[in-house]
Simulated assay, not measured.
Amino acid sequence: MAKKAKNFKKSRTGLYVSLGTTAFGAVSVAKQAKLAREDGDVLRLIDAAVSAAAIVTGLAILYRELRRLGDDDVLLG
């Protein structure tokens, strides 16, 4: 049981949790970008854009891992 819990990040469920938390971070970046536009703060707007690019890249990597996982789910068997 402990081994299964240790490999949670490599499971399908773990990847879904990671996808969800990464996508939830997009809400924070959207708020940051909105505030930066309202204030006219170019530096904060650039920071929001870079953060958004990191989120998109992270989601793409997690999606690729989810596709690679296939039927090798450590929690299912």
Rank of each mutant, 00 (worst) to 15 (best):
A36Q: 11
R67S: 11
L43C: 10
V50R: 14
I61K: 08
I46M: 07
A33Q: 04
R12E: 14
D47R: 08
A33I: 05
L15D: 00
L19N: 07
S11H: 00
K34R: 09
R37F: 08
I46L: 13
R12A: 15
R64D: 14
T21A: 08
S28N: 09
R44W: 05
L35D: 07
T21K: 12
S51Q: 14
A33G: 02
Q32D: 10
A23D: 08
A48G: 06
L19S: 09
L66E: 04
D39H: 09
A5K: 02
S11A: 06
A54T: 09
T13V: 05
K6G: 05
A5F: 13
A2D: 09
I55P: 01
F8Q: 00
A54Q: 14
I46Y: 01
F8R: 00
I61W: 10
A52G: 13
E65W: 08
L59G: 13
F8P: 00
Y63P: 06
V17R: 03
V27H: 13
A36T: 03
L66T: 11
I46R: 03
L19R: 06
L43Q: 08
D41W: 03
K10M: 15
G14A: 01
T13G: 05
D39A: 15
L35H: 11
V42G: 02
T21W: 12
D47T: 06
K6Y: 13
L66Q: 02
R12G: 08
V17W: 02
F8S: 04
I55H: 02
R44I: 03
L45V: 00
G20E: 13
I61S: 07
A60F: 08
L43Y: 13
L43A: 11
K10R: 11
G40P: 02
A23N: 03
G58Q: 15
N7R: 01
A30L: 07
V56M: 12
G40D: 00
G40L: 04
G58N: 07
K4V: 04
D41E: 04
K9M: 10
S11I: 00
R64E: 15
S18L: 10
A52C: 04
A23V: 05
T13Q: 09
D41N: 07
T22S: 07
A36H: 06
V27S: 11
L15S: 00
T21C: 11
S28T: 12
S11C: 06
G20L: 09
T13E: 15
K4Q: 12
E38C: 01
G25K: 03
K10W: 10
K31P: 08
I55D: 04
Y16I: 14
S18M: 11
D41M: 02
L19M: 14
L62H: 07
N7M: 07
L59M: 12
G14Q: 01
R44Y: 09
L15T: 03
L62W: 00
F24C: 13
K34W: 11
I46N: 05
F24Y: 12
L19V: 06
S28R: 10
V27Y: 14
F8A: 02
V27C: 07
L35T: 07
A53R: 05
L66D: 01
S11K: 00
A30D: 05
A33S: 07
L45W: 03
F24D: 15
I55R: 04
A30P: 00
F24G: 15
S51T: 12
L15C: 04
Y16A: 04
I61R: 05
R44P: 00
K4W: 05
N7H: 08
D39N: 15
L66I: 03
K6N: 10
E38K: 05
G40W: 00
A53M: 12
Q32E: 14
I61P: 01
K9A: 15
